[in-house]
């Protein structure tokens, strides 16, 4: 008799758990609050929206997430003299330097991405982006052909020596400079996501200057929805899609672009030539982590669709002629809508 009632109770609880689903403990509609916080970080505006039942708990979680992003920025920003990356840069060509296991792990992953994509993605791009004037607030300009050619040998991952035994790193050539701009924002979003989840949040949306992670849903009847900016008519969108527990990032030739002698130049440099990549206007990639999406958007932008098709990532690509390429599966899985 007793045993019977015990079994029933367990079944009931199990049934309730099933109803709630794995990621969705929030009973939507039960006085859920929607919070939004913005802050300038990593040279951009970082926006987080979150849905939670308790305002003060949610605020605390958001506060901790932003603090985590500040910590990551202090570690990785090449614009800050005290970051581990800046300290490595000042030691270029001189001596190896011990770095934190966290920074070391990021450099190792960056090296792995570079190997996988034939150094189309590289964190050694620093000398080139500096030469073009894309790494600071100065007005960018087209450098002399010779000065680009002179720097190309420094943009090579083989000169970044990583020593696992004492987590040290060494830029073997003088003049080398690491620039984690193509991966740090994605990593920071992933760290913020981890903090928000550890604080018990399930439904939130992190947008760091266009790199986005969407966790859970906005509400029971609405998924988080992302717009992809039109690369030429920048007041408009080229597409919208929904995201759940997934990231998206976009590389576009319209940010920080300038015209010199009638020719347009932008900030996404092809490391093999030292000039802006010419095969794309906009490249958006969906991935399980914001870091992957961030890296892959650059790769897709430089290589075009042919370079990424075999990689099993979903994408929306606007090529140099303005033609749209996308995986038609997205229409079903992510409610992709296109505007022309």
């Amino acid at each position: 008799m007793k045993r019977g009632s015990m079994a029933l109770r367990i079944k009931l609880i199990y049934g309730l758990l099933l109803l709630c689903g794995p990621g969705h403990q929030i009973a939507y509609g039960q006085h859920a609050y929607e919070l939004e916080v913005s802050k300038y970080l990593m040279g951009t505006l970082v926006d987080v929206s979150a849905v939670h039942t308790n305002v003060n708990e949610c605020k605390q979680a958001l506060y901790l997430a932003f603090r985590e992003a500040e910590r990551v920025e202090a570690l990785l920003s090449a614009q800050r003299d005290t970051s581990e990356i800046s300290l490595l840069n000042t030691q270029a060509g001189r001596a190896p330097r011990r770095i934190s296991p966290e920074t070391f792990a990021i450099l190792e992953r960056a090296a792995a991405y570079a190997r996988r994509y034939d150094e189309v993605f590289t964190i050694c791009i620093g000398p080139l982006s500096e030469l073009w004037g894309f790494s600071d607030d100065e007005q960018p300009r087209v450098p002399a052909k010779d000065s680009i050619a002179a720097l190309l040998p420094l943009v090579a991952m083989r000169h970044l020596q990583l020593n696992q035994s004492d987590t040290s790193a060494f830029l073997a050539r003088q003049g080398m400079r690491l620039d984690l701009g193509g991966i740090a924002k994605g990593y920071a979003i992933d760290r913020m996501t981890a903090v928000l989840r550890a604080q018990g949040l399930r439904d939130f949306f992190v947008n760091a200057g266009g790199d986005i992670y969407a966790s859970g849903r906005k509400s029971a009847d609405r998924a988080w929805t992302v717009g992809i900016k039109h690369p030429r008519r920048t007041e408009q969108l080229v597409a919208t899609l929904s995201l759940q527990d997934f990231a998206i990032a976009t590389s576009g030739d319209y940010e920080r672009a300038f015209v010199e002698q009638g020719k347009r130049y932008h900030h996404i440099l092809d490391p093999s030539s030292g000039y802006p990549a010419a095969d794309s206007q906009s490249a958006s990639v969906l991935a399980a982590s914001a870091e992957e999406a961030d890296v892959l958007a650059t790769v897709l932008f430089i290589r075009g669709v042919l370079g990424i098709a075999a990689l099993k990532y979903n994408y929306v690509h606007v090529d140099a002629d303005g033609a749209l390429h996308y995986d038609s599966l997205l229409v079903e899985t992510n409610r992709l809508r296109l505007f022309r």
Binding site: D47, S49, F205, N207, G209, G210, D211, I212, A214, K218, R222, W224, T225, V226, G227, I228, K229, T234, L237, T240, I248, A249, T250, G252, Y254, E255, S284
Partner: peptide, 8 residues
């Protein structure tokens, strides 16, 4: 608008 964020 129903759009929560824009990627660019």
């Amino acid at each position: 608008t129903g759009i929560d964020g824009i990627t660019h």
